[in-house]
Design a protein around this nucleic acid. Structure first.
Length: 192
DNA sequence: CTAGTGATCCGCT
DNA sequence: GCGGATCACTAGA
């Protein structure tokens, strides 16, 4: 299974859902995507909301590329750009289950607990060595590797909920996760 | 377990 | 000047 299995022209929330269970590697280091969030241009919580700027240019660039931004002045966060018909939209990678390059990740993070290596967008960035130099780079070639899940995930395997750490459009259910994973940045609230 | 806070930079209401 | 798509650490319940 290769990059071609993921259609980055689909709406961001669909791409975010489909990415759960896929494997993301940078220079051979990474793991299985267990948590994502979708951000669309028509979405007050998105960096694309106010239109293209120098910072978010990659969000308006070709789909299937990376958008990297600095969060709170210290963390690098990775988005995968998807773009339904002229929109600036992307999927934030919020958490991975580490499977490859555990030593490199532990070294970069300064700790070894696998559950703390990639359980949050800033942690993912640090563990995979993400920085501004990857902004705008295509996901289909080195240092990136993106492998679709071997078999499609069952509906019940995908948890859905409100996004984390935003103040606008808080009710939009555009956070997706692998149900029951121990590598999430936070647990999903159980369905009532 | 939850709540609060400092770190640290950049882009823009 | 203000406020983040965050994290780590502390204090207290």
């Amino acid at each position: 299974m290769l990059l071609a299995d993921i259609d980055f022209l689909a709406p961001a929330d669909e791409v975010a859902r489909r990415l759960i269970g896929a494997t993301l590697l940078i220079d051979g280091v990474g793991g299985v995507i267990v948590e994502t969030e979708a951000y669309d241009q028509a979405d007050p919580a998105s960096h694309a909301w106010s239109g293209p700027t120098a910072r978010n240019a990659s969000l308006f660039g070709p789909p299937g590329h990376a958008y990297v931004y600095r969060s709170y002045g210290l963390h690098w966060c990775l988005n995968l750009v998807c773009r339904p018909a002229g929109h600036g939209a992307g999927v934030l990678i919020r958490a991975l289950q580490p499977t490859q390059g555990l030593e490199a990740m532990a070294q970069r993070r300064g700790l070894a607990d696998p559950r703390l290596l990639c359980s949050g967008p800033g942690r993912v960035g640090q563990a995979l060595g993400v920085d501004k130099s990857l902004d705008g780079r295509p996901l289909g070639c080195p240092p990136f590797e993106l492998l679709a899940a071997e078999s499609p995930l069952d509906e019940s395997a995908i948890a859905v909920g409100p996004r984390i750490g935003i103040t606008r459009a808080v009710d939009q259910p555009w956070r997706f996760g692998l149900t029951g994973s121990r590598y999430l940045s936070r647990a999903f609230r159980a369905v009532a």
